[in-house]
């Protein structure tokens, strides 16, 4: 007597959506991960020691979760925000006082942004003190630094969008600092501002940077970053106190001795 569930799963429609079939062996479990677009990015198996909280404090994971949270709340906020003067300021007021849960999503976005900067920084420290940048992982560290810079730039471009006093003067000062760069400073400042001084051109440029260019770059580099970790054999845990392998996580041919 077959159950209803078994009958449904026998149907061609079901089989065309869920192609791996009944998962009842390790092979099938691995195949499920391999066959899935979203899941195959991650490894089928991970080492037990890398799952320990004290190995990484899950900082990298938290940072990527925060990023997706920011994208989610960001898209919601975009539905009520116009990057124009004076609409920008009034739309922020609208979100804070009129829109249902507008205040919640706006605050979530802001808190997640601050948290992401802090977490990414702590993640950087963790990687450094665990020696997880050692060969062959040197370039992944470089990618990580670029990710950190992108996080800061995202923070900075987002700061201008409410178009309040804090935002206006922060960007005035920031772009003036850019203007001090030798040789290319004035041109770079003009490029950022979109004019000779902070104006509506500046707002739209920062908006496009904040919602398209920088998140796109961050998402791409994040992919490379995680991919490299996977290809190098997974998370490098902190040294176990009694480990006799000081360079655990480094390939034999890349070790110094």
């Amino acid at each position: 007597m077959r159950t209803k569930k078994e009958k449904i799963m026998d149907r061609p429609v079901w089989k065309s959506i869920f192609r791996t079939g009944k998962v009842d062996s390790n092979y099938k479990r691995a195949l499920l991960i391999f066959n899935n677009l979203f899941l195959h990015f991650l490894p089928v198996k991970v080492r037990k020691e890398s799952m320990r909280f004290s190995a990484t404090l899950y900082l990298g994971f938290i940072a990527s979760i925060l990023f997706f949270l920011l994208v989610g709340t960001g898209v919601l906020l975009m539905l009520y925000y116009r990057p124009a003067i004076p609409a920008a300021y009034y739309d922020m007021k609208n979100l804070a006082y009129v829109v249902t849960s507008g205040k919640f999503f706006r605050n979530m976005h802001r808190w997640a942004a601050h948290a992401m900067v802090a977490i990414v920084f702590l993640h950087m420290l963790r990687v450094f003190f665990a020696g997880a940048y050692k060969p062959p992982k040197q370039f992944n560290w470089v990618i990580g630094v670029c990710l950190f810079l992108l996080t800061l730039l995202l923070s900075y471009t987002g700061y201008l969008l409410p178009w309040d006093q804090l935002a206006y003067w922060a960007v005035t000062v920031g772009t003036n600092i850019v203007g001090y760069t030798p040789v290319v400073g004035r041109d770079l400042q003009y490029l950022l501002l979109g004019a000779n001084e902070i104006s509506s051109n500046t707002l739209i440029r920062f908006y496009v940077l904040h919602i398209v260019i920088l998140p796109g770059a961050l998402f791409t580099l994040l992919g490379v970053h995680i991919w490299r970790i996977r290809k190098d054999g997974g998370i490098t845990p902190l040294l176990h106190r009694f480990s006799r392998e000081p360079t655990s996580g480094t390939l034999p041919e890349d070790r110094e001795n």
């Binding site: 041109d187 979109g194 004019a195 000779n196 104006s199």
Partner: peptide, 9 residues
């Protein structure tokens, strides 16, 4: 294209 030729000021 990125450097505007005409700005309102």
């Amino acid at each position: 294209f990125l450097w505007p030729d005409v700005v309102k000021q």
